[in-house]
């Protein structure tokens, strides 16, 4: 984050000086008062200037983009980061020549990067925003695969009259399966076990 330390006769003077030095509007500055100004005798003797630290405020989307750009650079991964920010969501699309590395086995790496980004971006912020990272439409395709899997397994449970326990999945993936089978007339789903090994059970109604 870009910041400067400035002084002035009043707080206002110091803030204006900071805005000029950083070349931004003053409402984009986060101000930390280091020393309150002290008026001297007759306004002349023994007075002390105000001292502040001013930092340029960044949106959470900007913080996210900076974090990922630096992360990918240190991972030696050539990538273009595209960020869309709404009130409660930061949605990121990453593109580049080697996105298979970023996705990893069953999206394992993509999930890890998404998790760490979410932690880092929300750490210093007052508001919480969910971070979702996707590349080459991986999440959408994975969702379609899970929907097909859910339907196939529901059919099997109905036919064999035996319950099926699925592999451990993350909350997002479990949600896809639950909602796919929510209205199924023959089967019911629930989750068992503790994170990160929580798994779905598809059973006969």
């Amino acid at each position: 984050m870009r910041s400067v330390i400035t002084t002035g006769k009043t707080l206002e003077d110091a803030i204006l000086a900071a805005a000029i030095q950083l070349a931004v509007q003053r409402d984009k500055l986060e101000i930390e008062v280091l020393e309150e100004p002290v008026k001297g005798l007759f306004g002349v003797f023994g007075g002390k200037d105000a001292k502040i630290k001013a930092s340029v405020m960044q949106s959470m989307g900007e913080v996210t983009r900076n974090f990922l750009n630096e992360l990918f650079e240190k991972m030696n991964l050539e990538a273009i980061v595209d960020v869309t920010e709404t009130d409660d969501l930061i949605s990121v699309n990453v593109s580049g020549p080697k996105m298979g590395i970023l996705i990893g086995h069953r999206g394992e790496t993509l999930d890890a990067v998404q998790y760490l980004t979410g932690l880092s971006v929300n750490r210093e912020s007052k508001t919480y925003k969910r971070v979702i990272i996707d590349t080459e439409n991986y999440r959408k395709k994975r969702e379609e695969t899970l929907i097909r899997l859910a339907k196939r397994l529901a059919h099997k449970v109905h036919k064999t009259r035996k319950k099926i326990v699925l592999e451990p999945m993350n909350p997002f993936e479990r949600r896809v399966i639950h909602s796919t089978l929510q209205k199924d007339p023959y089967v019911i789903t629930h989750s068992e076990g503790e994170e990160p090994y929580r798994k779905i059970v598809i059973a006969l109604k």
């Binding site: 992360l71 240190k74 991972m75 030696n76 991964l77 590395i101 970023l102 990893g104 394992e108 790496t109 999930d111 890890a112 990067v113 998790y115 760490l116 990160p196």
Partner: peptide, 11 residues
Amino acid sequence: AKAIRTVVKAA
């Protein structure tokens, strides 16, 4: 810790 290890493994 697991997420950090996963990212390092990929890199």
